[in-house]
């Protein structure tokens, strides 16, 4: 079942002079783990803002075409209605956090939905634990480091247990081991709870092993849309300058020299296995 569907989405910001989105038509199925990537300024963040209604309800401007998220037409529903179903982790955590303690920030969305106190407590505890910030619960978010703030921003959205989680470069300030932990958590939520994930990310070496659907945007348009292996190995991905995983790149440059691996690897495990076959076969 499609959980997000956009048809011919075209949008310009009120003060903008160029189209930020142009005829964007995509379908995301329930339970998918989507990586949304492409050059900066290409419309990724704007598209995410359409999913929870920030565009057009908050940003203004004229949105043409259709977005339907969890069966709701975004144009006809307010941001707070959409927020029950769809959570957005902002690119810059400072734009999202405002309370005087981490705990209050994480509880805020749940309080707004009128959830019983006991349940709020439970969900906040869970979200803090899963993002590894239980010890920061009394700290003011604005005094935390960039990486810690990003964890808080993710916890805020996690606590709401939305059907769809949109994460706009959620780990850009976090060290790789921390980032991988967060990705593992997101992956677990995706696999166990069936939460649909849309992850905006440039660091495909880290993120691609979780994805089963990749969308590449450039200059407001969707230029590639499909299965990770196909997208990463396509010529246009390289021409647009998508930072494809090094495992895939190695496959390509080996092929130039006449060494063919059996399939296109998208992570180190796959690449080492395929290389092992070639290396041990030739030896024998």
């Amino acid at each position: 079942m499609a959980i997000i569907e956009t048809t011919d989405l075209t949008y310009t910001y009120p003060a903008g002079t160029k189209l930020s989105l142009q005829d964007v038509s995509i379908t995301v199925e329930q339970g998918e783990f989507v990586v949304l990537t492409g050059p900066s300024g290409g419309g990724k963040t704007t598209l995410c803002r359409c999913f929870n209604g920030l565009v057009p309800h908050f940003y203004g401007g004229k949105l043409e075409g259709n977005v339907v998220v969890t069966g709701l037409k975004v144009g006809e529903h307010s941001i707070y209605e959409l927020a029950r179903h769809i959570g957005l982790v902002f690119q810059n955590p400072e734009n999202q956090l405002f309370a005087l303690s981490v705990e209050k920030d994480v509880a805020f969305g749940l309080e707004n939905l009128g959830i019983p106190r006991g349940d709020i407590r439970k969900q906040v505890d869970w979200a803090l634990e899963i993002t590894g910030i239980t010890d920061l619960r009394e700290r003011p978010p604005h005094e935390l480091s960039g990486g810690q703030q990003q964890r808080v921003a993710i916890a805020c959205v996690l606590a709401m247990q939305p059907n769809v989680m949109i994460l706009d470069e959620p780990t850009s300030f976090i060290d790789p081991v921390g980032a991988q932990k967060i990705f593992d958590v997101i992956n677990e939520l995706n696999k166990k709870l069936g939460i649909t994930v849309i992850l905006v990310e440039h660091r495909l070496d880290l993120a691609s092993k979780y994805a089963n659907h990749v969308i590449v945007m450039d200059e407001g348009k969707v230029v590639l849309d499909g299965e990770p292996r196909e997208v990463f190995n396509s010529d246009s991905a390289r021409l647009i300058g998508v930072g494809i995983p090094k495992a895939t790149r190695l496959y390509q440059i080996l092929k130039e020299k006449g060494i063919s691996l059996k399939k296109v690897p998208v992570n180190s495990e796959e690449a080492s296995q395929l290389l092992r076959e070639v290396l041990t076969h030739d030896r024998g």
């Binding site: 060290d175 790789p176 081991v177 921390g178 980032a179 991988q180 070496d205 880290l206 995983p245 090094k246 495992a247 790149r249 190695l250 440059i253 992570n267 180190s268 495990e269 690449a271 080492s272 290389l275 092992r276 290396l279 041990t280």
Partner: peptide, 26 residues
């Protein structure tokens, strides 16, 4: 707390084949 570059991870997984391990670039 660093995740090694992907190429280095590949070579680490192949370390039993006695390939050099100080490779980080494709």
């Amino acid at each position: 707390f660093i995740v090694p570059p992907q190429v280095s991870q590949i070579f680490f997984e192949l370390s039993d084949l006695k390939l050099p391990t100080n490779v980080i670039d494709v």
